[in-house]
Design a protein around this nucleic acid. Structure first.
Lengths: 126, 126
DNA sequence: TTAACTGTATTAATCAAATTAGTACAGTAG
DNA sequence: CTACTGTACTAATTTGATTAATACAGTTAA
């Protein structure tokens, strides 16, 4: 479910945050479904529980999950997050297209990249 | 010429590298023009000369500049800069497409944004 | 109630990477 | 020669992430 990349410059807790965000945004984790417990995930990844705790705290702060003492952490209603994320990604697309245009980059290649991602889906581990 | 952002997580030398890349890419620095000396720029930014040295070494490694002992560091032939920027923009396109895919964003809209930018060119006000 | 889970909080120690500091060497130009 | 330039190297410092060790609090089921 979660794979850590120790070559990545970014801190582990941030990778975990991002990974869960991906899982929730892609619909791989349903609303109200339970996340692994702080301790069990720490065990599974062979890292310290505090690091998981920090990741979960951040996810909760951003409204992705909610935590209940004694019960666990669960996926929150994130439909609104999804909407704003979609807005943002279209804006990013504009920026990329503008930069590409300024560089006289091949327009067709941009289209191809999009189609390739959409047909193949997520990346495979290289 | 160079402004540091200490809130930025990335190391200072990397910010400097990127800033110079931008300046060269936009044509603000002409080929063979001289960069500030390691020591003077360090003084100006109130940081250690070693940090500038590291940034310059990286710029040279990537072919953006060339350095001559005793003379200084100079902007290299920048025709290849455009190529590497093009590479970068395609990579950005991948990231955007991947994020859009995860959000189940409308693929067609991405295509439309690109075509719109390429047909209209840059925005009128900038 | 008790045992075994859950999240949360706190403090100190450790680790890694960036940055600093200091020094030295080598080439260029006036 | 003097004052610039780049380059190299090692040690110290700083900063942030991570670990470690505990402790406390709520939930659930036996």
């Amino acid at each position: 479910m979660i794979i850590l990349d120790y070559r990545d410059r970014r801190p582990i807790y941030e990778q975990i945050v991002e990974r869960f965000q991906e899982l929730m945004m892609s619909g791989a984790m349903e609303e109200n479904s339970q996340l692994p417990s702080v301790r069990s995930l720490a065990m599974e990844l062979s890292i310290n529980p505090n690091t998981i705790q920090r990741a979960y705290a951040e996810l909760e702060r951003q409204g992705y999950i909610y935590s209940v003492k004694g019960k666990g952490s669960f996926v929150a209603d994130n439909s609104h997050i999804k909407d704003s994320k979609r807005e943002a990604v279209f804006k990013k697309q504009e920026e990329v297209a503008l930069e590409a245009w300024m560089l006289q980059a091949d327009r067709e290649k941009l289209h191809e990249i999009i189609d390739q991602i959409y047909s193949r889906g997520g990346k495979s581990d290289d």
